[in-house]
Design a protein around this nucleic acid. Structure first.
Lengths: 113, 113
DNA sequence: TTAACACTTGAACAAGTATTCAAGTTATAG
DNA sequence: CTATAACTTGAATACTTGTTCAAGTGTTAA
């Protein structure tokens, strides 16, 4: 209860500022996933993913539960989906030139949007 | 036209991940400001602010125009306001504990929200 | 038990970002 | 002209984050 709001906000956005973390949030906003399922979609090392999940966890954006010897993650606020959509709107408006739209056209939207 | 979308998104969020840049966007989403006006609201060195404005400019989030020997900045997409509001919603939901609400209660919302 | 799978952790190093300083530009006022 | 206000730039350094590696925990399956 001591930090000014704009600092908390900045940190919040920094927490989203990593490709793997974005993909995790997008996958999780479809449905809960176990870590090995995330690993199947996101091409990074387990240990690296685990670190990135740690960032999201400490930020309060996702939650962990153990079930059947696997660790499942879920988003902790449904509004996260809205935020990602809002970002998407700005991106298509403002920085559309830099985006690779091929993935979109191939239909693997869910993995790469 | 080469980078995958989730990387562009991550970079986009990283561009928002700095207290001064957040404050700039919030001030600018109220109205255009000259740099010295921003400086009056945001307590950092001119040169530092200029660097941060450069980041926002290169990200395509703000635009520069020179008028009466002053440099005015404006947001380049109105959706930015929506995004900041969406972030606000998640923050109050998910990380409310870490926020300093005093500024809110003092009415300097516009400078620090 | 032991092995294998599914993860997490900490430490070390690499890579990226922020801040400061000194110098430079542009425009207006004296 | 010369000075001053309003900015910007680049380079140096300090700081923060990301990635990898090696080791460790918990759980199920032989």
């Amino acid at each position: 209860m001591k930090r000014p709001l704009y600092e908390v906000k900045a940190e919040f956005f920094r927490n989203l500022g990593h490709p793997a973390r974005i993909r995790v949030l997008e996958l999780l906003s479809q449905r809960d996933h176990a870590v090995h399922e995330l690993l199947a979609e996101i091409p990074i090392e387990p240990s690296n993913l685990s670190h990135q999940l740690g960032v999201l966890r400490r930020a309060g954006l996702v939650q962990q539960t153990r079930r059947d010897g696997q660790v499942y993650y879920s988003v902790s606020a449904p509004e996260i989906r809205d935020l990602l959509l809002a970002a998407r709107a700005i991106l298509s408006d403002v920085v559309s030139d830099q985006i690779d739209l091929r993935s979109e056209l191939r239909g693997d939207w869910l993995a790469s949007s």
